[in-house]
Design a protein around this nucleic acid. Structure first.
Lengths: 219, 219
DNA sequence: AACCTTCGTGATAGCCTCTAACTAAATCTG
DNA sequence: CAGATTTAGTTAGAGGCTATCACGAAGGTT
């Protein structure tokens, strides 16, 4: 996944094995979650013996970091596609639908990005760069929306605390809406993906749609 | 923690050791998250040798289940205190503030309840009973609120899909508001507790307050 | 053909969960 | 009180994991 700039046959082989390892890792994660990921088990599935994988990844942490990176990239690409497919270019509803589809396609991949963090872990810089790109798309979509209502007190706070939107021309109301888009949709998605709505009897998709509707209507 | 109905000295001792084990477990969870919980390490901290703990808990899973149960109970108690302390009895803002304080007091405890789930795991019945109790408090508070605006389409959906609120007199608009209360506040809290707002420069508390305000104002 | 880099191996250390067999202590019972 | 029984804790060990190391066996390079 994305390491295709190979020249020498050695590098080609190496890249292919790395990709195969990640493939098995994704299957494990999809079925049993990230905490159940085992280098040993992957090695056995590939007909290799344990330590062989350490030629390709420095350790479990590096593999997981790589998977997180890929997940972020996949999400960013998915959202980019969605905005490009939409005629208006930057469309909040298109983003929301793409986000939901992406999340439910593989809930554990969603949790890898937005789920319970590993206490010691700190994401490398290039991942935050991708995250910034996602935020920029969201800000674009929110800036394109008309903001008629009165300014909330929180929007005023954002006017002076917008380091995360540095360089983006979005007005405070758009910043507010971007944050609220993120937190509200994540609120529904994460509880749904975690199974907290199971057995309650209502359709989470309609709750998601209602929240999205609210997001579009409100200031 | 709640196993004090002991009579014989044997039961007293047993309950005390169980409590001590859980105490150490909470400390581990608070600092390193639930995935880092180690029976072995707890045993060593207590001056015991590994397998001794299996006299008190059938295994790691049972200990974690017990911790989840306690966490739910702690949250339910906290919210109950908050509603009782509030003069109006059932107050959405009191619930929201108590929830936030409880969550940030020990983020990993919050994640134990609302975070990334363990794929195979299914909560025992008595835990869902506690969760139902929490939902009932929330429904009470939402029923007490006036609902003036027009009914959302989702509220109509809830009218026929309210198994989770069976027996509660809340009207559909209140059900809708209860769900939205839950998902919106969880959206902010979980991202904040997971550190996703770190370095963004704004105050998550004000975003939380803004969401709460919106919740009270809107239909 | 000789060299050197890389891949995969088995061995090993050190964690972990969990079971089994055994000892010692506390409790219950006649 | 003395014997029988239950319970707490021990060590030993199986089997899993991450990770390091030293070694042989390939592969590409000159």
């Amino acid at each position: 996944m994305a390491e295709s700039g190979a020249k020498t046959p050695r590098e080609r082989y190496r890249a292919q094995v790395r990709a195969e390892i990640k493939q098995h890792a994704w299957e494990q994660i999809a079925t049993a979650g990230a905490s159940a990921l085992s280098l040993n088990a992957i090695a056995k599935q590939m007909g290799l013996s344990g330590p062989a994988l350490y030629r390709y990844f420095a350790g479990r942490d590096e593999l997981i970091t790589e998977l997180v990176r890929d997940a972020y990239r996949s999400l960013a690409d998915t959202l980019r596609m969605a905005t490009e497919a939409s005629k208006s270019g930057a469309d909040i509803a298109a983003l929301a639908h793409a986000l939901r589809d992406w999340a439910l396609e593989d809930p554990n991949r969603y949790f890898l990005v937005y789920g319970t963090p590993v206490p010691g872990y700190h994401a490398p810089d290039d991942i935050t760069v991708i995250a910034d790109g996602i935020m920029r798309m969201l800000l674009d979509a929110c800036t394109a929306l008309p903001s008629d209502g009165p300014a909330a007190p929180f929007a005023e706070h954002l006017q002076e605390h917008r380091r995360w939107a540095e360089g983006h021309p979005a007005p405070p109301a758009a910043l507010h809406r971007a944050l609220v888009f993120w937190t509200r949709l994540h609120g529904v998605l994460s509880l749904e993906a975690a199974g907290h709505f199971a057995g309650m009897g209502f359709d989470p998709g309609q709750l998601y749609a209602a929240e999205l509707d609210d997001l579009r209507r409100q200031p």
